[in-house]
């Protein structure tokens, strides 16, 4: 009886090791390699992160937000990692955190002062709270519109140029995807790139 048991255990151990090896090859090597090959073939640009070049240099990645705090640019959201993607992350401050309370009130004051907003309650929420990834590339269209005057003034734009920015915001706003998923949003990096090109 004991010998039989031992035999079963030995066979099972051998199968366990061989099966583990087979699974590692199948799901750990073949699967990711095949997916990479297929992805690079079907979506070469997207699989590599949707790179954006400017003057022959990498200016950034479409989906990875950048830090914008200069007056001539539309600001991106506050970020707990200051838009440094290694590693991504959030503040993880809880709802009764005094540190969060202080940060939020400072951001409110700053955003209101720089964009000449009198009603603090009208500031779009995402502009005073840090994102989950710290790399959120988007803000809401409202958040872009309330920065319009500041950006135009800082760039000494005339009325025609300012109108162009307005049209850019309208044109680059993405609605809910396929009419249903997600929130209206605008990619700050792409918007700022386009604004840089206004002559």
């Amino acid at each position: 009886m004991n010998e039989e048991k031992e035999n079963i255990m030995k066979t099972q151990l051998l199968i366990a090791l061989k099966f583990f090896l087979v699974m590692t090859v199948l799901t750990g090597i073949a699967y990711p390699l095949m997916m990479t090959g297929l992805a690079q073939l079907c979506f070469p640009s997207k699989a590599n992160g949707s790179l954006i070049m400017k003057n022959g240099k990498i200016a950034g990645y479409e989906l990875i937000g950048q830090k914008f705090d200069s007056s001539i640019y539309f600001w991106s959201r506050p970020s707990a990692v200051d838009y440094n993607p290694v590693p991504s992350g959030a503040s993880n401050f809880g709802p009764t955190s005094s540190k969060l309370q202080k940060q939020v009130s400072e951001r409110r004051m700053l955003f209101a002062a720089r964009n000449s907003i009198t009603d603090l309650a009208s500031i779009p929420k995402e502009m005073i709270f840090a994102s989950a990834s710290g790399l959120d590339p988007h803000i809401s269209p409202e958040a872009a519109l309330c920065q319009l005057n500041r950006v135009a003034t800082a760039r000494n734009f005339n009325a025609v140029q300012k109108q162009k920015i307005h049209q850019l915001i309208k044109g680059m706003t993405e609605g809910p995807q396929y009419f249903i998923f997600g929130e209206p949003r605008i990619n700050v990096f792409k918007l700022n790139l386009a604004v840089d090109n206004i002559r």
Partner: peptide
Amino acid sequence: IAGNMEGKETRF
């Protein structure tokens, strides 16, 4: 504030 955005992404 109601419905705050701390730790949330704009697109979601």
